[in-house]
Design a protein around this nucleic acid. Structure first.
Lengths: 333, 333
DNA sequence: AAAGTAAATGTAAGCGCTTACATTTATTAT
DNA sequence: ATAATAAATGTAAGCGCTTACATTTACTTT
């Protein structure tokens, strides 16, 4: 069944049917109603391919993330999908892993699929070597690119980020103000946002005239055990600390396990702060104080920006959203 | 740039270019190479719409789940996407929520998008009222439907499930054999698989001549606090129990929180078993004994089955995969 | 070398839509 | 009532592919 069947049954030309389909208002209300009811009667749905051929749009957005099974990214993918669908857009999900060549391949794949825009979720999409990011700038020549949680300057490239630097700065500063001065910072990545967070930590120390110690700033796999092990190694070397700030809840869980193993009381002897306020934060005992990085707001901004671009409105190329500290049982601030 | 540009530059007809594109072997090797190199040179990628119009396939699978931010479903979506891509298929993700009318709407949307098949992930897609499942049977008339973690008999409907009944039976039986006889079972849903799990619990009691107590079989929201509260209410009523088996890790976390609050030692006084072996199981102290429901195997079976259907091979309409008990600190078996 | 067959290539007709442009019909101004 | 204008509808030419069928070229067989 196709547009001809509908046009025949409604006694109009296919052009009129097409106009009804596309909400063109050069159709009399009477005709529109008749066509609509015929479509309904016939159970007609337009063929997306034929439509795409004419319109050259699929009403589909490509979503790329390194790994959608990651708790944080899974949430982001969920919210993005919801927002997109509310705007009548579909999404195609691509989990790229961390290899740059694979990211590039998927990017090309999405472009060849004629998606209308691409959302890159997560800070892992930006390399510190600019030439590795060329494929993004390249892609932006053919469609709008939205970056979630990282930023890259360029024509047709937009970003929405959480103000990670301020978030880590604030919580570190609060810890210091409430008496802590040996604060460990564990972070999972040296990505743009990873470094921002680190810089927030350093600025807070700086402001309070506390010297930064290299053994207190540790890069660590996003893994409960790795975090625990690192803290164990500090402890074994007789290096004491009174707070652990992390760039991900999983590391904070590891810190809590360290405390448990070594009979260190939380929060009396050790304060712990997570990041992202994921479900993990509510699993532990005591529950984690964590920085809510506002995924939902980030995702809705992301989609709104993209819709703005499609509507050829003026949209900000960079949005910064403030995080919120959720205080639970692992801190005494 | 289109197929004409390629054909012109390669000095062949568009039919030959199309043949190269589709791996048709009525093309001489020399010509194929020439065409291929021209494509490469021009950076040509075929237009998916035009292609779809002719082939009437998109090499795309629709994935429907109630909520991809759920830890378990997020994992499933991830593995499915990986497997599909390995088979050169894209996926369109739809998070439907739990309302039946919405599920139906998304199903129709996917069909109108001309996807080649639809995967329904999670037991929430089957209603106990058969007439509510009519839309699935209906959809199966136009494309193959794969159910992950539920089963429905019907033409063009296939399923892959974890053997939940056996899994819960085994662990309950083990708990009894190692001395527990007041075992609470908390479950999140009365879906097909939810009831299977419950039945596994009941069978284990039955086999060991332990009478089933209604207050020990409790339906409970998939929520840490709800599980804790229910156990608290039992405890307050002076009803004692020595083990809690659950249908989801989050409930087990709740059980652990209950024990903590009431100074009940785990596993000495109370054994706790989770389900799905998610990241949550490794966050708590002690860590959760949990049933690994084998998402990855389930997802690869799912995609393989679908590919078998497309290749018109004979495939089993129902696959059952055995779970595995991962023993950690919350049990003494 | 001619005839017969197989392999390689080309021609052209769709696939189901959108839309510029042409035509008809309805509305308004004179 | 008529001309001028606006609104509604129709006609037909694409969009970029696939593929049945026709044709040409290359290889066998006798």
């Amino acid at each position: 069944m196709n547009i001809y069947d509908v046009s025949k049954k409604a006694g109009v030309s296919i052009a009129t049917v097409s106009r009804v389909l596309n909400g063109n208002n050069n159709v009399s209300e009477k005709t529109r109603q008749r066509v609509l009811s015929v479509m309904d009667e016939l159970g007609y749905t337009p063929n997306v391919f034929a439509r795409g051929l004419g319109l050259n749009t699929m009403k589909t957005i490509g979503i790329m993330c390194t790994d959608s099974s990651d708790v944080y990214l899974a949430n982001a993918v969920y919210y993005l999908e919801q927002e997109l669908r509310a705007n009548d857009y579909d999404s195609i999900l691509c989990c790229t892993g961390t290899r740059n060549s694979t990211k590039k391949k998927y990017m090309e794949l999405l472009i060849s699929k004629r998606v209308d825009g691409i959302i890159l979720v997560g800070s892992k999409f930006l390399d510190t070597h600019m030439e590795e990011n060329a494929y993004i700038i390249d892609a932006a020549k053919s469609l709008p690119i939205m970056l979630v949680n990282c930023h890259l300057d360029g024509e047709n490239i937009y970003s929405a980020q959480c103000d990670d630097e301020t978030a880590v700065f604030s919580v570190t500063d609060s810890l210091i103000k409430s008496g802590r001065n040996k604060i460990v910072y564990l972070y999972t990545s040296t990505s743009q946002s990873g470094l921002k967070k680190l810089s927030g930590y350093e600025k807070a120390l700086d402001l309070n005239h506390i010297p930064a110690r290299t053994e207190f700033m540790q890069l660590c796999h996003k893994d409960i055990l790795r975090a625990k092990e690192y803290l164990n190694s500090l402890h074994a070397r007789g290096i004491s600390f009174d707070a652990v700030v992390t760039s991900d809840d999983s590391l904070a869980v590891g810190a809590l396990k360290f405390a448990y193993e070594n009979h260190i009381r939380v929060p009396d002897e050790l304060n712990i702060v997570g990041y992202n306020d994921s479900i993990l934060a509510r699993c532990t005992e005591p529950e984690l104080t964590s920085i809510d990085s506002k995924v939902e707001a980030l995702c809705s901004t992301t989609v709104n920006t993209l819709m703005g671009v499609f509507a050829e409105k003026h949209v900000p190329s960079k949005t910064l959203i403030q995080a919120e500290l959720i205080v639970r049982g692992t801190t005494r601030l």
